[in-house]
Design a protein around this nucleic acid. Sequence first.
DNA 1: TCGTTTTTGATAGTATTACTATTATTTTAG
DNA 2: CTAAAATAATAGTAATACTATCAAAAACGA
Lengths: 225, 225
Amino acid sequence: MAILTFKLTENLYIKDPQETELGRSIVKNSITLIDKLGFEEFTFKKLALEIGSTEASVYRYFENKHKLLIYLIDWYWTWLEYIIEYHINNISDPAERLRICLRKLVEEKVFDPNIAYLDERTLHRIVGVEFEKTYLTKQVDIDNRDGLFLPYKSLCKKIACVIKQVNPAYEYPHSLVSTVLLIVYQQLFYAQHLPALSDIKYDPKKHYKKLYAFLENLVFKTIQA
Amino acid sequence: MAILTFKLTENLYIKDPQETELGRSIVKNSITLIDKLGFEEFTFKKLALEIGSTEASVYRYFENKHKLLIYLIDWYWTWLEYIIEYHINNISDPAERLRICLRKLVEEKVFDPNIAYLDERTLHRIVGVEFEKTYLTKQVDIDNRDGLFLPYKSLCKKIACVIKQVNPAYEYPHSLVSTVLLIVYQQLFYAQHLPALSDIKYDPKKHYKKLYAFLENLVFKTIQA
DNA sequence: TCGTTTTTGATAGTATTACTATTATTTTAG
DNA sequence: CTAAAATAATAGTAATACTATCAAAAACGA
């Protein structure tokens, strides 16, 4: 059993949280706490209390909760790209590669503590609710310059390349992929909380299938010549 | 010259801001201030200072800044639905109706103080950056029950109906429309701040056209039988 | 026009947040 | 075993997100 870890840009943290017990505890517990409270209500003080440490100690790892959130989400996108890469690796048919990408995006995330360092299922939920808050800010240009959004851009680029393989003439592969990436989380959120905005009914057993059907149709028809 | 105003749900405010000079000043100035500072940095204290009033007075109109933001955005969606309604009103061809919907969604907003009560151009920018923050919260179900998202759902439904007219067999009209609504703001934001995620280049003279091309292709191909 | 209600302004106060700083203690690494 | 590094404990600050009180001003109704 190989434990998966990824190295993220140093601009995200003051001190690498993967290197110490406390650091790993901060990351691990911030996931459950953000999931439970939502990002707005989440504070370093509450986190410190949860892990039996102090606010000041948390601040030695992350400048602020914004950076910590991006750290978690960057980890998720890096992990997802790895998963997708792994599964399309030896598939030669471009259309099939694209179908696998979509399936991996939509598919329910499983958490295997033997393989994963973090709980991807909870992370998946956090990404759905909090991801857009990471860039819909006044500091987006600075954060972007600092490379904080690289994992997401990398994933987007990878899938855009697959689209280009299916139809090299299609003009908007990046726009389509960034759209698809948002749809996944948006439609699942709507299904659960704002059902008037979606035709996908909330039902953990079936909605992944419906979402996939919606997406496959949208993507393949859109890029067809 | 008719001044456009809309009545929004009473759950949004403590005291109707349209009824008093101070109320209108709060609404008007909150738009420019949120646009300038971003929602996170925006506070009732700063707003009160700006309009020469006090924090306590602002709190007499809105429970908190979250409700104020939804008020502004609800106003925008109500206005946009009115505009769309107005333009598709006497068009009989469903495909043409749909094309007009898309055009009105994408089109640069103009601000005519003779017709409009609020500055829709600035509001458009706020919607792009702040809209998703209104529902990506832990209170989404309560806010939804209180009818705070009705204008958006109404707009979505209206356009979904147009899609149904174009192809009654298409299974995901609401999902497609809510997707399209987000794309508009998302792709313009990406074009400006995260260009790696989009194929639309930032250029106020031409990007509306490109965005429209991307959308028209996506929507019509997706729903075609 | 007078009296009343409503609205606003002025001021104050509280709990919480988002930090920074200092020092003592513990852990770890050479 | 010692030095360096990491953490805990504690304190402190400015700002936020409110609530409360009371007086002045404006609006309004008889």
